[in-house]
Nucleic acid binder design. Structure first.
Length: 828
RNA sequence: GCGGGAGUGGCGGAAUUGGCAGACGCGCCGGACUUAGGAUCCGGUGGGUUUUCCCUUAAGGGUUCGAGUCCCUUCUCCCGCACCA
């Protein structure tokens, strides 16, 4: 017999058997509880990286464990296959994006299979397949018909070097992710999804997501950014209405100026009216070309210029100067703010710089703000002053009264404002799902009828980085007939953001080959929502928020049974090397393929699961990998060495008596391990401690074998330990577990077995070691019968000679007894 | 600036409800086996020391019979948001 485990042979063997047996295919089965385990599907970049390995190793533990618990487990995998890198490869190397993507998928599928993950590959989807994107288009139409997809002119991120529009997530610190060029804005006609219509529900329902990390819920909450306040309509002297949004209508009497964003339409009007105002023109032009980061950084000094125009205060009628400043953003609120320097730090900074008046209108309790000298604005609550009829009121009360007054006079009302913006889904790219819209000179915007879907992406397109969608050059694609009037029409040439594709893929897995529907009611009804979703925290906002939005829309359409897609979320940490992110430029990338080739998939998985708890960052350690490899061989040697000895041994009965102390210790270790591993996987997600519990079991079995010579060992007890060991290892090192199962002469696949249950009677011990503390310090230890009363414990402890000696000359104040753990003697 | 997380041996980490700090692994040291050992098995391994003792969970204080865990103050690091009116 080999003294070493041949992982290459074994892993290949079991992967082939699983594949031949369709071991992980699953069907709806109402007799079993369902469990939908999902890991974020990858972009097919060409190769798995360690982050993928971690993600999918974690998912596989969860999936295999629940399968062994008897649940019907859906565990699918697919490809987020549209996206810019494929198009870049086409531009650079002349490979067609579809070919590039297909090759990458094939390679990554092979790599995934070499990891031994228990996917139901019959459900594989790729978002770039017409059978998938047809339904992405269909979903676009559903949103369109509900008024949730609309077209408008908007300023989008533009990379001048790549000559293309960039998605928000591809702008890092205001620069293009790939070429590091400063991103500018470009005005284009774009399609949007009206996610803001769901802002409040997306916020409210975060409370339902108790199975999500609080961190992610908070990030989404901040992203949605709900603020409650009022819209107040100021009026320029020429009559133009200038509404502002404020969260502090109670400070309205403190307004000493107004500020507009440089892009505000009224500024444009003013410039047309007074072309001689060179200062204003220069300022506006300068700020407009400022980059987003420069413009929005808190570091940037506030700058502004007086427009020469005045507005009238809605309550006092006072003339307030209208300024333009870089710190006001057109996109938020109304693009105009009322300046209340006494109670807003930004306004105060601005007012001091340009010597604008400061007026205190709220005095906080116990302080006396002086507007002549204050350098820090005061946002605290207090009593109203300098506020006409509202003087003396508490500002919270005044807030409501002022809103009432404004409403009565038609000058404002209560208003809720969100930071969340509508989702821009147009991309001037080829490699994405076509937007199923036609432009007809006679009928305008016309949606493609559902029966005509999919709008196929043409394959014979030239990819030059011109800055326009390559689809514009495809005459066959571009020119069509209006579905409504039959006249000549043009297709929309922009494609959809890939986040649209990934917002519903978890639904498609339920019925991946359905030609009639995006997803079938029965299947989607059975499987959704996802019970456990696992992926990187970098998707905390984008993908997870978009998916929640989609699910709610589909719920409202009556297409899905739940309005939240992911019940439980686990966000795994990054895989680092020497404390920093693996990257090609740093040259610290560890290749999963090489690790699997060298040590095997089980070793890679085991190391990754053992090295850190899943949500924490994990530092890759070559020595740690060696350790995992050694452990796997150690386990194999143990079982291979004992297999013949325990062959044919009977099963130990739960509660078996008349065992030697060594055998009872072994059973104790075995059943403790079962208990611990079960708890760690199912409720704590602490796979590192689960693995360490298995290691302890292995040590205990070695210990038993060392203590008791061969021939005198209790074969049934030993067999039980080895069998349970194989079962406990199954989710972590699935190939090794199969191999052990076979060595032990068990039939079938270890993964089709029931998860072991601990035998409570094996956990019963008749003696426990307790600690004796004197004034909280450990002074002695002794064994006492398990389950004795506190009084008995105290008695036993006090009777001990050593304890007596230590109590000499002291008086016992009291004794604190913790059953089974310790006795603390408080003495003076 | 705001929000979140973390800080425990030489290293990764454990301690789940306030009850033996350092499980498990790596590394290191020793032993056995061996022609050999970078394999394997067994054992040791927080620090100090005057060794029936003392110190130790970023620092300091507090609550408690008892604190890594709870409270207060401070420091450091990581992540997210960042002029959101």
């Amino acid at each position: 017999m080999d003294s070493r485990y041949n992982f290459r042979q074994a892993e290949k063997k079991w992967q082939q058997r699983w594949e031949q047996a369709n071991a992980f295919q699953v069907k709806e089965d109402s007799s079993r509880q369902k469990f939908y385990c999902l890991e974020m599907f990858p972009y097919p970049s060409g190769n798995l990286h360690m982050g993928h390995v971690r993600n999918y190793a974690i998912g596989d533990v969860v999936a295999r464990y629940h399968t062994m618990q008897g649940l019907a487990v859906l565990h699918p995998m697919g490809w987020d296959a549209f996206g810019l890198p494929a198009e870049n490869a086409a531009i650079k190397h002349g490979i067609h994006p579809s070919r590039w993507t297909r090759d990458n998928i094939n390679n990554m599928r092979r790599q995934l299979k070499s990891m031994g993950v228990s996917y139901d590959w019959s459900r594989e989807v790729a978002t770039c397949h017409p059978g998938y994107y047809r339904w992405t288009e269909w979903l676009f139409l559903q949103l369109y018909h509900r008024g949730l997809a609309y077209r408008k002119q908007a300023a989008v991120n533009w990379c001048p070097s790549c000559a293309t529009v960039l998605a928000n997530e591809q702008v890092v610190g205001g620069r293009c992710e790939r070429c590091d060029t400063l991103v500018t804005k470009k005005n284009l006609s774009q399609w949007f999804f009206r996610i803001t219509a769901y802002a409040d529900r997306l916020l409210q329902d975060l409370d339902k997501l108790q199975g999500w990390p609080e961190k992610v819920r908070i990030m989404q909450e901040n992203w949605i950014g709900k603020s409650t306040g009022a819209e107040v309509r100021f009026q320029a002297e020429d009559g133009t209405l200038l509404p502002v949004f404020t969260t502090r209508p109670d400070t309205i009497y403190g307004v000493t100026y107004m500020v507009l964003a440089p892009e505000h339409p009224f500024v444009e009007q003013l410039l047309e009216r007074q072309p001689e105002n060179a200062a204003l023109r220069a300022f506006v032009d300068r700020v407009k070309v400022q980059s987003e980061i420069d413009r929005t950084s808190t570091e940037t000094e506030k700058e502004g210029v007086f427009t020469g125009a005045y507005a009238l205060h809605p309550l006092t009628g006072e003339r307030v100067p209208i300024w333009v400043a870089n710190y006001v953003l057109l996109e938020y609120g109304t693009g105009a703010v009322m300046g209340v320097p006494a109670h807003d730090q930004r306004d105060l900074d601005f007012a001091r710089k340009y010597r604008l008046p400061v007026r205190v209108v709220i005095q906080p309790l116990g302080r006396n703000l002086d507007d002549r000298v204050m350098t820090e604005a005061c946002a605290d609550p207090g009593v109203m002053v300098n506020s006409g009829e509202f003087d003396g009121l508490d500002c919270e009360v005044a807030k409501l009264r002022i809103i009432e007054l404004l409403a009565r006079q038609g000058k404002g009302q209560e208003q809720v404002n969100y930071r969340l913006r509508d989702w821009l889904i147009s991309r001037q790219r080829y490699w994405g799902a076509p937007i199923p819209i036609v432009y007809c000179d006679r009928c305008g915007i016309v949606p493609v009828p559902e029966a005509d879907l999919p709008v196929m992406l043409p394959l014979d397109v030239a990819f030059e980085p011109t800055g326009e969608s390559p689809l514009l050059k495809s005459q066959d694609f571009l020119n069509t007939n209006c579905p409504r009037c039959g006249g000549p029409a043009r297709r929309e040439t922009d494609t959809m953001d890939t986040f649209v594709c990934s917002s519903w893929y978890y639904l498609r897995y339920c019925s991946p080959r359905d030609e009639e529907h995006a997803f079938s009611g029965d299947q989607v009804g059975f499987w959704t929502p996802v019970d456990q979703y696992i992926g990187g925290v970098e998707h905390a906002i984008l993908h997870l928020l978009y998916s929640r939005f989609f699910m709610k829309v589909l719920y409202d359409l009556g297409l899905v049974p739940a309005d939240e897609p992911f019940t439980n979320l686990l966000t795994q940490g990054m895989v680092l090397k020497e404390g920093s992110k693996m990257s090609k430029s740093k040259g610290n990338v560890v290749s999963p393929e090489e690790i699997i080739e060298h040590y095997g998939a089980d070793t890679a998985r085991l190391f990754i699961l053992f090295a850190a708890p899943p949500e924490r960052d994990l530092d890759w350690s070559d020595q740690g990998v060696e350790g995992a490899y050694r452990f796997i061989n150690r386990v194999w040697r143990l079982v291979a060495g004992a297999a013949s000895e325990v062959a044919g041994a009977g099963r130990i009965r739960p509660g078996a008596a008349d065992l030697s102390p060594e055998e009872r210790a072994l059973r104790l270790a075995t059943h403790r391990a079962i208990l611990k591993v079960t708890e760690d996987i199912s409720t704590r997600f602490n796979f590192n401690t689960a693995v360490s519990a298995i290691m302890e079991l292995v040590n205990a079995i070695y210990h038993y074998a060392e203590q008791v010579p061969a021939g005198q060992r209790h074969r049934a007890v030993l067999r039980e330990s080895l069998v349970d060991l194989a079962l406990l290892l199954a989710p972590f090192t699935p190939h090794l577990a199969e191999e052990l199962w076979e060595l032990l002469g068990e039939s079938g696949s270890v993964h089709q077995q029931r998860w072991p249950e601990h035998d409570a009677s094996a956990l019963v011990v008749d003696e426990v070691e307790i600690v004796v503390q004197i004034n909280g310090r450990v002074r002695d230890r002794l064994n006492v019968p398990a389950g004795i009363s506190q009084a008995e414990m105290e008695q036993v402890v006090l009777a001990k000679q050593r304890v007596q000696e230590m109590l000499q000359g002291k008086s016992l104040v009291r004794a604190v007894c913790v059953p089974g753990k310790l006795v603390n003697l408080v003495v003076k």
